[in-house]
């Protein structure tokens, strides 16, 4: 029995490689892509750092300038102990969780941009196979 070959359109396997090739070979197109990813990730990271600085970083100054705040009691505990001993930790975890969500989304956009759908590079839409290739022809973002 001969092997069944499904013909779905032009061979796409060489083209997806071409896009990552842009990055491997540092073409101007490739470096534009990488720069945009780095800029997105860096501004995200600096955003988290800024939130951290404004919330937790401002506390010593606050306690220094307005000592009454630190010593005010909530449920029998001074606010300073409550904030620094307890509330800080879920807040850090929340910031970290939000960061991971957004960082992975940035990477996903980037992967889609360079992935096998090069006929429509502007579609930075939902994940998974899109466009005419459908479920049959696409090699998926992981490549061959």
């Amino acid at each position: 029995m001969t092997e069944r070959v499904r013909v779905t359109g032009p061979d796409r396997r060489s083209r997806p490689l071409a896009r990552t090739h842009d990055i491997d070979e540092e073409t101007s197109l490739g470096s534009v892509y990488v720069r945009s990813l780095m800029r997105a990730q860096l501004s995200l990271a600096l955003g988290v750092v800024a939130v951290l600085a404004v919330t937790i970083g401002a506390l010593p100054l606050l306690f220094h300038l307005v000592p009454e705040v630190g010593n005010a009691q909530v449920a029998g505990l001074p606010i300073a102990w409550l904030v620094l001993g307890v509330l800080v930790y879920p807040w850090l975890l929340l910031l970290g969780w939000a960061y991971v969500q957004r960082a992975e989304r940035n990477e996903q956009h980037f992967t889609e941009l360079l992935g096998p759908h090069e006929s429509r590079p502007e579609t930075a839409g939902p994940a998974g196979p899109a466009g005419p290739a459908g479920p049959t022809g696409s090699t998926g973002p992981t490549g061959p």
Binding site: E26, F110, T142
Partner: peptide, 17 residues
Amino acid sequence: ANRFLARLHAPESLDLE
């Protein structure tokens, strides 16, 4: 430097060298 930074920031799902 450019190539190295691309490796650092591009997700592994892209099949870079």
